[in-house]
Design a binder for these strands. Structure first.
Lengths: 125, 125
DNA sequence: ATAACTGTTATATATATAATATAACAAATG
DNA sequence: CATTTGTTATATTATATATATAACAGTTAT
């Protein structure tokens, strides 16, 4: 799995890590039950601090993406990622709003916006 | 125009301000050519610092949402907000990706996602 | 003219976040 | 017994956020 970080980005490194791992799951490059590298080895591979990796893992755990076994390691949730529930949908609506507000202000057609979404979805099939 | 800020939010105040003003434009509560409050009066109304308001206005200016006349004031771009161009579309794709990655990981149906987008669009018609 | 108002610039401070550097701990594994 | 796991703790640096004051240079209204 390729993880290319942009250390100059305004997006925190741990956020980039979280997104990359989620993308790996969406692409099925990472499957339920699969072990992730230890915080130390991944940090060494990426040339970053182990606490930065740990923070990413903790966030993934909090969202139900991974299980963390104290003396074993980090594993993609064997049950699969928790399904979309009401809390998640409300959060998604809140995240979508500013994107759609921008699109409307810039006079982008609803159907064009939808088309962009469909193209993104297509990348994961 | 109602601006309710959440000072405890992890979202910076100036970002909340930018989003609220953009939403006002999308809802046509704010129209091209319309003057916005001065940095001082808006800051006083909201109980925040004038530099926080100024930062929001500068970002809106940078994105072409407003014009700032040095000794006159801030005005919604009379020409209207710049249309969606290629740069914008690329940025939108990048902003959509993490939302769609999450949706896919949580096994949300593409059509359900689209449906949520359409509902958001409906709020602005 | 003068006072009040505009955005702008400058300086300083306080707080929080992000990232790093070390070190040590407890439990499991080789 | 040494190594590896995540965890916890402490400290430091840098940056972002927000505030507080003050002053400046034009513009507008009185």
């Amino acid at each position: 799995m390729i993880i290319d970080l942009d250390l100059q980005s305004e997006i925190p490194i741990y956020t980039q890590l979280v997104q990359t791992i989620k993308k790996g799951i969406a692409l099925k490059e990472l499957v339920p039950g699969e072990a992730l590298p230890s915080v130390r080895s991944l940090a060494a591979d990426l040339g970053i601090n182990l606490h930065t990796v740990n923070k990413a893992y903790q966030l993934l755990k909090q969202e139900g993406y991974v299980f963390i076994h104290r003396q074993k390691g980090v594993v993609i949730n064997p049950e699969g990622v928790p399904k979309a529930d009401e809390v998640y949908v409300e959060k998604l609506k809140g995240d979508l709003e500013p994107l759609i507000v921008d699109a409307i202000c810039r006079d982008m057609d609803e159907e064009r916006f939808i088309q962009l979404c469909r193209e993104q979805f297509k990348k994961f099939r």
